[in-house]
Amino acid sequence: MESALEEIEFLALSANRVDVLRLLSEGGHTRNELAAETGASQATLGRILGDFQDRSWIGRDGSEYAATATGRLVASGFTDLREIIETERRLRGIVDYLPADAMTFDLRRLATATITTPSQTRPNAPLSRLLELLEDADDVRTVSHAFNEQTLTVVRERTADGEQTFDGVFSRSAIEALAEDTGLRNSLEALLETDGASVRVRDGGVPLAVMILDDVVYLLLRDEQGVLRASIDTDDDAVRSWAQDTIEEYWEAAQSLEDAGFSLE
């Protein structure tokens, strides 16, 4: 009897085998239907179906073939494995910058996320992506270790025009950096004067930068030196639920600027 790894190799080495087992796990198919769906020749299909029958992965009823219970189990498991590997390959280049300890959702939920990384021609591509999302968002909530000038400007302008509401929790160092720069300090003051904005301060560390813009979750990823490395955005329900809980937790534990000892006047 072949080992489990040999069975996985048997299936993985042929895209036709994977496709045929997937199709048969979804319902009965004739050989002609399988040929039309996969593009495989009748000879190839004959070998595949024979191998599957030897393993009791499929059964036959007249001219139709369909997966057995164990065949469906294998198909489901292999699909899960393939989705995991595909997601891992997408995240491989940025995994070192993910706030993994804080991300309690299944990483497979990022399978269809938009990943934006800097390039030679677009070194600020992740930030540009954020600004693009900010320009269209009606409701914005965030927790972050930084509050950069471009983001502050867009939020201030849109809240002042009544086009956006904004709630943000920032690290003390982020607010201190704004307060020390006259121009940024003025922008922050102007933001806080609007009816649609509220900002709180977190004294403890803020190990992530996550924002919810209407239904989209945006993650800004930096390395240990603070260099911008990538961004991820997704409208996945599970990721959004995690982001909502995370921001709410930080919001409840944070202080107002006044209570945190900041006076911007």
Rank of each mutant, 00 (worst) to 15 (best):
N124S: 15
P118Y: 10
G62R: 03
G77H: 12
R122V: 08
L73N: 14
L110W: 06
I84P: 02
A100Y: 05
V74G: 00
A102Q: 15
S119E: 10
T87L: 08
A100M: 13
E135T: 07
L81F: 13
D61N: 15
R108Q: 04
Y65S: 05
A69K: 11
R82T: 15
I115R: 02
T104A: 13
G93D: 07
A100F: 02
V95K: 02
I94L: 06
A75V: 04
F52C: 03
I58V: 15
L81V: 12
L133C: 09
R109P: 03
L73S: 15
G93W: 00
D106Q: 04
L110Q: 05
L107H: 14
P123A: 01
A137V: 08
D106K: 01
A66Y: 10
T104P: 05
E135Q: 09
D96E: 15
R89Q: 10
E86R: 08
L133D: 01
Y97S: 01
P99R: 11
R89T: 12
D101R: 13
F105P: 13
A111S: 14
W57M: 01
R108F: 04
N124T: 13
L127G: 11
P126H: 09
S56H: 11
F52L: 04
F78R: 05
E64R: 01
R72Y: 05
A113S: 15
D106E: 12
R55T: 12
F105A: 08
W57Q: 00
G93S: 08
T112M: 09
N124M: 14
F105M: 12
R122H: 13
A69G: 08
L127S: 15
D96H: 06
R72S: 15
I94A: 01
D101A: 10
A69C: 01
R129S: 12
R55I: 06
F78D: 03
R90F: 08
S76K: 01
R82A: 14
R109M: 05
T68G: 01
I85S: 04
A69M: 10
N124K: 14
Y97H: 07
A67R: 00
G77W: 08
A125F: 04
W57A: 00
R109S: 12
